[in-house]
Design a protein around this nucleic acid. Structure first.
Lengths: 206, 206
DNA sequence: GTCTATAAGAAGATAGAC
DNA sequence: GTCTATCTTCTTATAGAC
């Protein structure tokens, strides 16, 4: 990886652990293996590093959204998957989302950084809400909505059903971010949650 | 209010908005109406102000826990209330918790400060988890457990039922902390959530 | 307890050689 | 692009008068 990218990578790690204000330019440089003044050949100042991290995330997100839209448009394939969604499929959907968001290195660091910096300005708050509130609700609402349309889940309010599916996942995610030692217990709770969700919104046929 | 207390109050406000590292001692002093050096007659250093805020919160919490235990011990009175818990009682329970945590000035500022500082050290992470995860789950689990025992809510897993009640409340709370303009919509969602919760865990008799 | 003056040090950023 | 040396500014904290 080239120096410019490595600076972003190390900066993100440090920002996610200590917050922007507690990270010194020299600290980032040291981890990259250069001296602080050299860093200024790559970025104009400390803030430019932070902004570049946000930009990179926006790019990654756009790509991901594009990829999801492609699948989303391929409604035939998607609905086939979810038409015969068993409890195991539902468990997989929840676990995959949870473990991807929890363990994916980039996601984890970016989420923790946003958690720390979310009250600094509205742009950061909006990014947080988009990534960890609105987008997951939209995506999962779409999937659960398809299952409900096929009659396998029963509800007259898909939005609230999606809230009931996602809020516990979000809640467990924030617990594990704060204290990774709670992860095994959280995974058990996650499975119990989804099984109970499946029972509550019980399928009409199986 | 005496100067010593006013320092804590203004510091908490600033810490909750910008985070500890972005607040300068002179800034706190200015809001109190004194100069920075005068502040050092009240607190040894900047860190001592932060620690005093944590201490004060611990005191307030202990008092609150004590008050709750008194009611908690008075099981006769409590269970009477929840034996005939209607949907309206359930809505009230959720709304009261939500609005108290959301609007109580001290709570709001302290929660935002902890949100920002939670990854700085384990003690702060533990306080956050205790106040906004474990304690609400324990308290609400106790109340919902009493209702379930009386047969008005049906479940074989009180812990998951409590998760299904509380996780959406927590989720909506963090959204409103980030963006107060979402509050009206969140309150609507809260009511819909509780009504749906009530239907899902449907009472056997009414 | 509050002030002014100031010390002490940290951290961001630049200059200029290589 | 990286380095050493250095500047500048900001911030915490102290000294000592009132």
């Amino acid at each position: 990886m080239d120096t410019k990218k490595r600076i972003l990578d190390e900066a993100l790690t440090l920002f996610s652990e200590k917050g922007y204000a507690n990270v010194f330019v020299g600290e980032i440089a040291e981890r990259v293996g250069i001296k602080a003044p050299s860093l200024y050949k790559h970025y104009k100042n400390k803030r430019a590093i932070f902004d570049a991290i946000i930009d990179e995330m926006n790019q990654r997100f756009e790509e991901q959204a594009k990829a999801m839209n492609i699948n989303g448009t391929d409604a035939a394939a998607d609905s086939k998957i979810y038409m015969d969604m068993s409890e195991e499929h539902l468990l997989k959907l929840g676990r995959e989302f949870f473990l991807y968001y929890l363990h994916d290195d980039y996601n984890k660091r970016f989420r923790k950084m946003l958690t720390i910096e979310q009250f600094q300005d509205k742009e950061l708050a909006d990014i947080y809400t988009k990534l960890y509130v609105d987008d997951p609700m939209t995506y999962q609402g779409m999937l659960l909505g398809m299952v409900a349309a096929s009659g396998l889940l029963k509800t007259d309010n898909v939005a609230i059903m999606t809230l009931h599916f996602y809020a516990p996942i979000y809640y467990l995610l924030t617990i594990c971010d704060r204290d990774p030692s709670r992860e095994p217990k959280a995974l058990e709770t996650l499975d119990e949650h989804i099984k109970q969700f499946n029972r509550l919104y019980g399928r009409t046929n199986k």
